[in-house]
Design a protein around this nucleic acid. Sequence first.
DNA 1: GTCATCGAGTACGCATAGCGTACTCGCGAG
DNA 2: CTCGCGAGTACGCTATGCGTACTCGATGAC
Lengths: 275, 275
Amino acid sequence: MTKDENSRDHIQSLERGFAVLLAFDAERPNPTLAELASATGLSRPAVRRILLTLQRLGYVHGEGGRWSLTPRVLSIGQHYSASHALIEIAQPHLVRLAERTSESASLAALDGTDVVYIARVPVRRIMSINVSIGTRVPAHATSMGRVLLAWAPDSVVADVVGKDRLPAYTRHTITDPGELRRGLAQIRQSGYSIVAEELEDGLLSVAAPVRDRAGTVVAALASSTSSGRATVEQLRSQVAPLVVRTAEQISADYGHPAAVGKATSAVHTPRDGFF
Amino acid sequence: MTKDENSRDHIQSLERGFAVLLAFDAERPNPTLAELASATGLSRPAVRRILLTLQRLGYVHGEGGRWSLTPRVLSIGQHYSASHALIEIAQPHLVRLAERTSESASLAALDGTDVVYIARVPVRRIMSINVSIGTRVPAHATSMGRVLLAWAPDSVVADVVGKDRLPAYTRHTITDPGELRRGLAQIRQSGYSIVAEELEDGLLSVAAPVRDRAGTVVAALASSTSSGRATVEQLRSQVAPLVVRTAEQISADYGHPAAVGKATSAVHTPRDGFF
DNA sequence: GTCATCGAGTACGCATAGCGTACTCGCGAG
DNA sequence: CTCGCGAGTACGCTATGCGTACTCGATGAC
């Protein structure tokens, strides 16, 4: 329409299809055709064609004039997990980290200015939102995001830090670009990041980088807890080394020629009986 | 083309878009354009248009002639989770069940003849495949599948049991449709299902139904272990009641007017210090 | 009871979005 | 240097997907 938004080599129907699929959310779990049409801005017949197509593919289910997503949409994400060996490799390490800390362990990657959880072992509910695989949080206010930004190409960092002031989520959130940049330099030196109550009150986390064969940082490993259960100093002295070491082991398993001592694949140490 | 496969109200480009997206998998994590074309059976220019569209939407990333999925594809599944309150409601119960049994806890729904994991708290690696959210397993050989089939409409059961003989995965897999049907009747009576080594050698699991407000079974809750850690009899006497009770609590939280005693929302009982 | 409103579904004709063929270009192997 | 392969591009055709406009049925107001 305008200029090159709709230029050649862009398939309109595909974009529209995703728009409809993504129009299902917490506010609209069982929309009608008309609701979807107004939510997406498409004409009713267009939405109908899309829904019937999605239904034929099994992603959507229509009943009594209301539509809903089927569990099959979850298998789409499977293809991401299946095509990234890192995730499977990291899994046992996450379980072990969660066991040893009695806290949730997470692995995340950067997508634009957000951090996306790509693997996770939940232990206890800390955050107000339910964090699951695929959940997105702003990179600049989380330990995993800071780690990823610390080793990201400058163009990516610029996208995040580009603004004059970054959005704050609590009164502790670092909103000054300069201060954040200095923080990233600090992380590059120490090899890990600790963020306390910048995304949510009472939420603390430590993160360390995971590298691929070439040494590029491709993900961040984190352990999260709440202010009632640990202090920043405890995190620094006790958890951070463990997170760093686990991240190094994951990197090693992933092919990074690590300098980590006898790093070897998860030697699982059971520590309890059946109950 | 043929008859009504391609009939009206079906959007070709949308189906093709998904075909390309799903062509990424473990065997083809970083395909070239030509590989995707031959994998999907589409022409190269068609695949190219689709890839460029997906790239613009952020689902795919192209570099050096090779393409890969971005973590953004995981957010698609988020819309399923966000639009199904059950998942968030079940989460703390899964964590608690995993804690009390020291075994992985899972929630799954039925999709065709498969069971799809929709929430999960991993504790230990039991299965040879890495089970994550979105993973699909055949319904007839798993405890969660049996539970879901036991209360499914007959048409759904017929889809699974329709064949003369069901596929076997171990030498214990029930392959006789009649025997399976009798098993389902048994499950309806006992209220839970135990399946031992029918999907994989050494894999045991117990499952119980989760119901919605109307009493319809919408998901199955399971606890899985390995033959080295428990016997079927232990599962039956100790784990099954816990799984059933937890499933009832989830149902109650989900709005089912349960007959469960003082069922209330997750009263979390921490049982360990920071380490 | 009637009327008004709203949404689902359908028909249809038009425009164009999306198609595949066929070409060029660049790279790497031999 | 030639050959083969894959990426990218051009282009003309038409099937594809589009929106307008209609019918039908359910719901609710009065």
